[in-house]
Design a protein around this nucleic acid. Structure first.
Lengths: 352, 352
DNA sequence: TTGTATGCGTTATCAC
DNA sequence: GTGATAACGCATACAA
């Protein structure tokens, strides 16, 4: 039904009709394409009457310039690339939105790519090729998985800033949180509350470049402060299940810990759930701390004691320093470590 | 510092160096650009030895084809556009990721645009122009704000599917949840629990095309079932603050309601918080229900009684029917209403 | 098997 | 003021 018979002017045309080009507009306005181009680029030297005709014709045709053709001749795309590991992860989702806003303020579009949610490094490399194929002028990489070697390789091709992951390299800039500082901050708070036997969920470095240092720092600092530390390892970061967390909680309780330190709010929420299922609660039976401090889990209803990462600042600094790099105004390839802040909630208190 | 003096082969070259073109590869391999093109497009008719040389040269130069140039000659971009109102909203964030995955499976890239987080319809129109300028082959619109007129206008230019918002038009396809059905489902559950005096937060239609019908349906159906319904209006959807929700909770309690029905999990969480601040709790003092049922707020720890939207199905169907439209295989312009399901949690129970 | 020529839609540099 | 014309980087029909 609805065959291609709509050629009338006023009707709704088929979406399949090829988009109007500058030539169509020119023909309709009875001028050459040069004039159309001048009108649309606000260039001077066009008679007012002609301009009106061109504008009118463009409007009627619903003409929108082909961005790619523009980019080809302009030799610039006005686009920044954002490569995020998984946009559905709240951390990356928020980061993405914030970066997009800032980039728009600076006159850049943002095109994003993801490793398609899978775990393969090869996938991530291909995603990077997509970005360079699009000729983005700069690239923000938000992935804790991609090997440093690959980052430097792509950084050789296009100005690159790594966000949310500790990386010190003179090939690119980086903006990230002081993970060790955050871990110590949490440790200090827990110790100050009076806990002397503390369980800490510790990630191994090969699982996560962020969770690992923060959890290690927390454990180390608690030890320095003189507390007994029970280090609970985790096997697979991306698939840490409720059962895994449940086992961690059980281990913490078995070990007689009065507090459990977790490297993310998401894990903390699961720990709270595990406690609840056991008929226990935080902080009465076990003090619980998280890490992140943004989004839904930062709700005062949950009252999670956590460490807040300065997400807006990360996003802004990443984009700003990338744009600086792109425009060659600044060297912008240093590493910037940002401090977070303690959020005192109700899930951690003095030990019973 | 670090002036442009790095011309050495093995060194890390300046990122500012212009990306290699097919001509560079051709020159380095000692062939014409046609041969390079054939090798890279897997076209037959190239001597094995030549192919090797070309591949080697391309590898050395780190050559990545310019996607835009390819698109220009191919007259297709292989890209779908996703226009989302606010990617930091969990609903849209999840939707985006799911759509991206499905599109990748079907061989399409997804380029996203947002209304820059602001409220202006003009901004949204400009964002749509960005998409059409990029010559996306199809467009998924996820915005409850954009007027139907604008949707149909863009749908005349490019195949369009509206996702997550009720819209019946023969200009485009649409996939959305049966909002009224969901509202009735919640109402039925609350009534079945025994509540006979229920407060319902009701949005006016001009604030949200989704929250409004679901909240109205809930209120209407409760009335039909014979319950006393206290309709609490809300003034500004996007800025509904904790204070607003607090006032709603207060009003519900004042009116002697035993249950409070809210049109989103986010609002429900705020209601729970408002209760907690008052030293009250759900469901003891007031039963509370939400709506959405995905992401962090679906955690069993919160135990929210809610209505789950089939987000993955929405995403999949939206992309599938859009691709069908793009490829002209199906008409794909019908409206598809998806059913959700009740999630029985612990925040709603029989009245005290 | 390989090289040459043309065109995709646009901007910019020329002449007129 | 306006109109040809040359790029931009690539794929492809066609000639060698």
């Amino acid at each position: 039904m609805a065959d291609r018979q709509a050629e009338g002017r006023g009707e709704v045309e088929r979406a399949s009709a090829r988009p109007a080009t500058i030539l169509d507009v020119a023909a309709r306005a009875g001028v050459s394409k040069s004039v159309v181009s001048r009108v649309l680029t606000q260039a001077p030297g066009v008679a007012a009457a002609t301009r009106e005709r061109v504008l009118h014709a463009a409007g009627e045709l619903g003409y929108v310039p082909n961005t790619m053709a523009q980019a080809m001749v302009a030799r610039r795309t006005g686009a920044l690339g954002a490569f995020v590991r998984d946009a559905s992860t709240p951390f990356y989702g928020h980061l993405l939105t914030l970066m997009q806003d800032r980039a728009a303020e600076l006159g850049y579009r943002v095109v994003t790519a993801t490793g398609s949610g899978r775990f393969s490094v090869a996938d991530e490399r291909r995603a990077l090729d997509v970005m360079t194929g699009l000729r983005v002028e700069g690239l923000v990489i938000c992935s804790g998985l991609l090997p440093e070697r690959d980052v430097e390789e792509v950084a050789a091709k296009v100005p690159t800033v790594v966000a949310g992951r500790p990386l010190v390299s003179d090939a690119c800039g980086s903006v990230f949180c002081d993970e060790a500082g955050g871990g110590r901050g949490v440790a200090e708070h827990v110790h100050a509350l009076g806990h002397r036997r503390v369980a800490v969920l510790v990630h191994s470095p090969d699982l996560s470049l962020t969770l690992s240092p923060r959890s290690r720092a927390a454990a180390d600092h608690l030890t320095e402060l003189g507390a007994d530390v029970v280090r609970l390892p985790v096997h697979d970061f991306w698939r840490t299940t409720h059962e895994d967390v449940d086992a961690v909680v059980a281990a913490a309780l078995d070990a007689g810990a009065t507090a459990l330190v977790l490297p993310s709010d998401r894990l903390a929420l699961r720990a709270l759930e595990a406690l609840r299922v056991r008929g226990l609660e935080a902080p009465g039976d076990l003090s619980v701390t998280g890490y992140d401090g943004f989004g839904e889990l930062a709700s005062p209803f949950l009252g999670l004691t956590t460490w807040r990462q300065p997400l807006p600042t990360i996003a802004r600094m990443a984009v700003d320093s990338l744009v600086g790099l792109v425009q060659g105004r600044v060297d912008g390839r240093g590493a910037t470590a940002l401090a977070g802040e303690l959020v005192v909630g109700r899930t951690a208190s003095t030990p019973a």
